[in-house]
Amino acid sequence: MIYLMAPAPKARVSGGFRVNEALRQRLTATGTGVGIHADPEEVPAKIQSLPSTAPAHIVLDSLYLTDLNPARLNHVLVNRDSPTRLYFLLHFLPCMNPSLSATTRKALQEKEHSLLTLADGTLVPGSTLADYLRNEALYTGAIYRCPPGIEFTELDTPPSDPWDKAPSPRLITVGTLSPSKGQLDILSHLQQLTPSFKGTWRLLGDLHTEPEVYCHFKRKLNNSGLKESIHLCHSVPHSHLGKLLTDADLLVSASRFESYGMAIAEAVAAGIPVLTYRVGETPQWIKEGENGFLIPVGDHKKFKSTLATLLHHPEELFLLKRQAQKIKEEIFLPTWEITFQCFLETFGE
């Protein structure tokens, strides 16, 4: 039996939560397992309460890596009456946050290593996370690939959207508002454009996770002269994302780190060109100059100049979008059923 444990999503619905939810639904539907919501302090007791009549595969979400007590977790595992195997489902690693100081990163790595060494296996979305685990000697055991599904929920009646009549070019960014995601950098680039930006930029995602960042962004936006061109859209339902992406002309991501890059993959699947740093698994999906541009991480000058070129030469951007529409059929992106099969294969199911 497979037990997938993760914190309840609360207000924030991330890509990792969507992976967990897709797996939970399929575990329940197939009778191969169950999903369990638990706060970090509840995890040991939840494990203790699991049935001991059959072997158990316990899968813990990566959000637990900063809060679980390794000694307590190990004590619970070794005292179970039935064979028990532990896995971590790693959507990301907290220690990979590029804004961390060296001291904070080292402390996080030590904590994560102490928990990961208890695991019989880890599941990762792609090679970026797998390589980091090995290169930093955080985990030397079995690593399994479990990429997220890239699919859109079709709406019977698409929502009316005033953006349909917004001036072009129409930019979109999807992700939690955070310094490491780079939305403030994009705003600065748009402010500095000459001639000035005449299009529309829509930001989708959890905008209130870091209140001080949100307040800083709002102040900067109010003083930018671009207030009427930039729209903040907090917690838009994922069922609306397909249409919103399709209506856009360019997805812009200045994120300095992605373990996978789910929003970028979804843009590629929707046939929308992408301007992004070379992060996560993006080289698998972006064909340079054909459906987007990959900028070396940290090269702000090249990112800014590429964005300016696309905005000041809309004919090039619209050609790029036509190419992206054609190329999307050639790029393999997994469905949720493929994700689930990869997940089950980890446990020999």
Rank of each mutant, 00 (worst) to 15 (best):
V213K: 07
A265K: 02
R85Y: 11
I272T: 12
S224T: 10
L241C: 01
A248M: 07
K220N: 12
R219M: 03
L221K: 01
N20C: 06
L275E: 02
G35I: 05
H189G: 01
W285N: 06
V59E: 04
T176C: 08
E315I: 07
E258A: 01
E290D: 04
H240W: 13
K302T: 15
L187K: 05
Y214D: 03
R12T: 07
Y64P: 10
D161G: 04
R322A: 12
S188N: 15
D161N: 13
T117R: 15
R202M: 10
G242K: 12
F92W: 06
R24S: 15
T53N: 05
L171I: 06
D39I: 00
E210G: 00
L317E: 05
S99G: 05
S196K: 14
P7A: 07
L171W: 07
V76I: 14
E210T: 07
R18N: 03
N135A: 12
F303Y: 11
T176H: 05
P195T: 06
L123C: 13
D120P: 03
A248E: 04
K326T: 11
F217C: 04
Q109T: 06
P40N: 12
E281G: 10
P158S: 05
L73T: 10
H113C: 12
A8E: 12
H234K: 02
P98G: 00
E330C: 08
M1P: 05
L203D: 01
V43H: 09
P283A: 10
V252Q: 07
T246N: 07
L251K: 04
T140D: 15
F152E: 02
T103I: 10
P125E: 01
H75A: 14
S62Y: 11
H189F: 15
K111L: 14
E136Q: 13
Q109D: 06
F332C: 00
L275F: 03
F92S: 00
V34I: 09
F88E: 03
T103M: 08
H208L: 10
V124A: 03
P159L: 13
S160A: 12
P195K: 01
L77R: 03
L23V: 15
K198E: 15
S168L: 06
P237D: 10
S235Q: 12
H91R: 02
T153M: 08
G15F: 04
I338V: 13
P273A: 06
G205F: 05
P9N: 01
S305K: 12
H57F: 08
V13M: 08
V76M: 09
G33K: 04
P98L: 07
E290W: 01
F92R: 00
Y214K: 05
N291T: 05
D185T: 13
K181R: 13
D185N: 14
Q109Y: 00
S305M: 10
S49K: 11
I327D: 02
Y144V: 07
P211H: 09
T122Q: 05
P7F: 09
A71H: 14
L4N: 15
R80E: 00
C215T: 09
A324K: 01
G280A: 02
L93V: 03
L4Q: 09
L203T: 01
L115S: 09
E330G: 03
D131R: 13
F318G: 01
T66W: 09
G348N: 12
R256T: 06
P167M: 06
T66I: 08
L310D: 10
P98T: 01
R278W: 09
A269D: 06
